[in-house]
Amino acid sequence: MMRNKRLFILLIGLILFIAVMGFSLSDRKDLTWPEKFLNDTVGYVQQWFYKPAGYIAGLFEDIRSMRELHEENERLRMTVASYARDKIRYNALEQKNAELQEKLNFTEEQKNRNNYTYMIAQVVSVSPDAYNKTMKINLGSRHGVKENMAVVTEHGLIGLISSVSPFTSNVMPITELDGQSANAKWISATVEGNEEASFGIIESYNIENGQLLMTKIAEEDPLKEGDVVVTSGKGEVFPVGIVIGTVTSEQVGDFGLTRTAFIDPAAQFDKLSEVLVVKVPDAEGDAE
């Protein structure tokens, strides 16, 4: 009798857990308040630990890289000079562009489409799980963060916001992308300098070679090895022109109708301390 009761409780527990897992797998729009409360409290405590640890680790890194400092300085000076040149050109072009938009009667919304806001966020913790590398950042819905916003570093795209609490939110790195999963997320991408002609979808990440898989590339697409892949912003939620990575190889896809390409991600996903959340002006209107 006793054995039976224990088995019964075990089975009920098992069913309960499967139900909870199935529920959490579905596409949830919002977290419940206990989850939000827990996320914010734990996130608040975690930030006291993550940042100092990062500082100390960074200190050792700095000492190691002291020797390369001179070289880097030289290289950066060159880049700054070329930026200054580009800036003059950019100003002139921007002015011209604004003028033309005025003449063509662009609405306010159309004009503001590319005015992204970059919010600086501190990473608060990283998930200790091999299959779930979620990061926590210290910006939440109170700061205007919404689900599916792009998260970038200075090198390129690293992920998207997966869930939001008032003061913290979770970031799903693009290494977690999986086209085969139940509620898969896709990122539409194009090639830098060839935005009109190229198009593909970043679908999943290959853990063995550490590269992203870009699929649904048209046969006549001019994409080739060494091209820099950027977000195309066709989905309206994502900003335009954020670097994803460089193409390392491409081949004909599974059915022979489209091509696929492997992309080496530009950004570093580990040991991050600061990231930027990109706020697209349009997305705010859509969310209402």
Partner: peptide, 20 residues
């Protein structure tokens, strides 16, 4: 459960179940 909720990415209950 604490770990599942704080680092909610795909599923809730995985670590809770396994640890228990």
């Amino acid at each position: 459960l604490l770990q599942d909720l704080v680092f909610y990415g795909h599923l809730i209950g995985v670590h809770s179940f396994a640890m228990g």
